[in-house]
Amino acid sequence: MDRMLNVALPKGRLGEKVYDMFARAGFPCPSILENNRKLIFENPEAGVRYFWVKPSDVAIYVERGAADVGVAGKDILLEYQPEVYELLDLHTGVCRMAVAAPKGFAEDPMRTLRVATKFTNIAMDHYASKGRDIELIHLNGSIEIAPILGLSDVIVDIVETGTTLKENDLEVIETIVPITARLIANRSSFRFRQKEIRRLAEGLAALV
């Protein structure tokens, strides 16, 4: 093997779960389980190098070839539209992209709808497909408080269990798209490391 397979994993609970799948698919790297602050781990015997990155950055690492493959949520792929191969739905990290509003919210079609979100492209596409005139408010976090403070009418965000929404007196009024984690690959790497990437994808496919 000429070079190790570089894998970008999303930091956090999802990444740990996904690593476990990778290990069972034949790409183990036990040192990753040691509790320390290192970000890069390699196992030359298995020919694999893992690194933890911010979940929303995985697609960038893969698109630009720093990682050959990676795991990213469908939300990130829809938002940034990276030019990568989407090889497998891992059926984990299940949630949905949804529109939420304060309980009892009635939309006034005569007014521009104010939408607060982290996912501006997804929100824009969603409302453009309905021909709805909106005002976008891009926020980086704590989206839920936007409607409470009157900053926006609704929010577009990821909903997993709905607990955060409930605690802030919000409810889902529309599901835009279901979200799961996907195995993605760099288009150039796929040409030159096809054998390993296929072995990984097939190993993972057997687990989902």
């Binding site: 698109e63 630009r64 070839g65 030019e83 191969y85 760099n186 288009r187 150039s188 790497s189 040409r191 030159f192």
Partner: peptide, 25 residues
């Protein structure tokens, strides 16, 4: 067959070249 090109302009055979170490075509 994942090799793409806009069908409004292209037809028939299309191709792309890659080099190891360059992340895009």
């Amino acid at each position: 067959f994942s090799c793409a090109a806009d069908m409004n302009y292209y037809n028939g055979i299309v191709f792309r070249g890659f080099l190891d170490g360059v992340p895009e075509s």
